[in-house]
Design a binder for these strands. Sequence first.
RNA 1: GUCGGGAUGGCGGAAUUGGUAGACGCCCAGGACUUAAAAUCCUGUGCCUUUAGGGGCGUGCGGGUUCGAUUCCCGCUCUCGACACCA
Length: 888
Amino acid sequence: MDEKYFPEAIEEKWQQRWLASRVFEVEIDSSKPKFYALEMLPYPSGFLHMGHVRNYSIGDALAWYKRLKGFNVLHPIGWDSFGQPAEQAAIKRGVNPRDWTEENIVQMRGQLQRLGLSYDWSREIAAHRPDYYKFDQWFFLKMYERGLAYKKMTQVNWCPNDQTTLSNEQASGGICWRCGWAVEKKDLEQWFLRITDYADQLLDEMAEIETGWAEKVLKRQRDWIGRSRGAFVDFKVKDSDENIRVFTTRIDTIYGVNAIVVAAEHPLIAHHFAEISAEARQTIEKIRLDKLKPANREVEAEKEGTPTGLSALNPFSGEQIPIWVANYVLMEYGTGAVMSVPAHDQRDFEFAKKYDLPIPTVIAQSPKSEVQTPDQTESQITTAFSDYGILINSGEWSGKTSEGAKEEMTKVALEKGFGEAATTYKLRDWGISRQRFWGAPIPIIYCGDCGIVPVPESQLPVELPDSAPFNEVGESPLARVPEFVNTTCPKCGSDKARRETDTMDTFVDSSWYYFRYCDPRNPEMPFAPEVIAQWLPVDQYIGGDDHAVMHLIYTRFWTKVMRDLGLVKFDEPVKRLMTQGMVIGETFFEIIPNETDPQEEGKRVYYPKEAVRIERDAKGKLTNATLKENGTPLKFAVERMSKSKGNGVNPDEMIQIYGADAARLYVLFSAPVENELVWNDAGIEGAVRFIQRVYRFVWRWQTALLNAPEQEPNEFSAEARKLRQKTHQTIQRVESDFERLQLNTPVAALMELSNALGDVRADPETAAADVLFAVKEAINALVLMLTPYAPHAAEEMFAALSGSDRGILHSDAKFPQFQAELAKKDEIEIPIQVNGKLRSRLLVASETSKEELESLARADEKTREYTDGKQVVKVVVVPNRLVNIVIK
RNA sequence: GUCGGGAUGGCGGAAUUGGUAGACGCCCAGGACUUAAAAUCCUGUGCCUUUAGGGGCGUGCGGGUUCGAUUCCCGCUCUCGACACCA
């Protein structure tokens, strides 16, 4: 240990030792409880950003804490290395995506290691390597066998100029991002996974993880799945033998139907196209075209529609009602047709108002309701009444409750053959086909004679060729690699067979990666089931809430499929999920006004901090910012860190200036994990100062402490007792906060303990045995509890204090043992309130009785200033807490 | 619009079940050390008021429950986020 704290030297030294001694590599060990700490694996962009640093610092702190608590901790990392950016790099710079990806991995692995993260590097995996994606393909085949993978026609965004499909983002505004042509919808055959089969399980088995996942994540998943229970009802189309089927959750309102409204794409429209007037056809065509444009998310589209001239018959009332087409009915949901009940559905209400349709009221708030009664004239209604209530104007059903009517009417519909109970979902099957090169090839062969033939398991992996013509536009680049495409049919041996040229969505890779960590080199299977049984489920998963729906639903789905394949024995893969907040920082920008539309806010042009002259007031608040170059006044805000906003912080620079320990400590200390974290350079300096203080203390005391007797003294001075009390209070706080996953407050507790050590006045050389003992106990505890936050410094100090540099995990060091009797205060301060206002304080022995506290409080001089001459109504005494005297 | 989260000093934040609001850190101010600066250490730091001792106010706003409310209940305001015609 050097006298001065040099993070660079200490960090490099311990990082090398950790790697050399393989101290974080684990095997199954039945003598210890297991703990699986998992963080979301990064995409290898080449550069770590502060969001990663935060994510991995949280995970690493938990991993260290659990190790010190005696757990066998699995803490792995890998690379989500398939995906668009590698292919973009290939197109833009002509590099090979594989080389680009591998280089980035080397870069980022170095960055992770410089942060000193305690990963088991022997388990590192990467999605783009054949030994990994072989099993993406293996799972695909298993799902295909079970009918869970299937092919169907679907609409995609298509640029006719570039001959390529576009994602919704690339088709933003209805024009191609690359060439500016109008985007079309095109039907394309795509592979899907039948996640909808698992919709109910995905909802119902949430019960198993409710306590460990943030409610906001579960809620988003519930909304995403969007289960809705109701009924299908068939309305007879007049003068036809057709029925039109609607889905409704409110069959009880069926006497209030004023129209059937269908989507423009509804088959009924095509069937009866000849009967529809030219004017109506025009409107229908307009609606259809409008729907092809990407939606404007800012404003809800104006409701628009047209009557078709067709009519339908209400199966309950027998009433004849018109059939309309409207833009607010979605073909993709339910049956693409709804029964319009304007009095009790806001959307139908707005539509009816616009086109002056009747608004019959059939639900009243109560039998004697003042709202929505039949006496009320339609014009008085300003909004739909969509709550449950009592049926009115509903023939024989009048007087029943909504709940009762729903059930009975559904039953009647079933009996009479014009309907049935039904459940619908927003969740769609998972389309996994991508017309991309840099992904796992879908292991399917098309044979002229045999049709769709899955690649036999023995021929896996279907490997990507080294390269493909990336610069060509069009369908999947693989389609232009003849050596890849042309193959023999595994079934009939014909050499005219062609391979599927689409690759899989990268969310496939990330759906099961953390299972592979458990058995990363298994050549036969994605993993051995008995190994999974030892490590999974994941005890703590940590990541950003941007993955709340996609990734986290897909991986739950994948787990359930693996369970049904007999590979795993549980329903839910992740017991506890923590979603960390974003890292944000100050941004400086200029607003260039929008010339075409001065109402709209103009474009923001961002400048990096270095280019800005910043003025702050005496208290440090940012008051003014101008461009250094020419004094242009700038606006400022606090926004998500990103390169384009010029407010990013480079982790390597942070490590270089302050050290990895300080950066990690700062990130964990300055905000609760779920909050946003505002980056502040001054804060990280505070973290350095704290580490330095502890370090200096250890340096000053190490010799004296090494030579101190092991034996616990019989007597402790008041000062030593006070220090021991603080030590044990700190242990308790740190431990309970960690168990609650609250990682910022333990740092505050450790700082307090450090401050208490700073208050020790004794000199190391001359300190009495009891003080030496108390100091040794305190500093040992402090250093160990600091490990999760600043592992390098902790190792260094631990070595100095123990006189051995084997390392914390190779010694028998454990998380310090809390001793309640030592933490107890013998004297406590009791506040005295008069009518709830603090008036005095009492210093008493802890556990002073109620009676004694009351008499002490009444006798207290300061208190008597307020109570003398007044009538005491009541005295509330809470032992060890407070006294409240109530006077009149 | 619907749903969900949030609002505490100049700032990040703390306060297990209602019980001393503002721990800890940052910023800032003053002091010690130094020829000087940096670093370090010490002190102060919610607001208003007072010569002082002290007093008053204070957890977004308005009510309520309670001896006592940042915490529980009712009604608002603002804000961040998700979804957005899902029948």
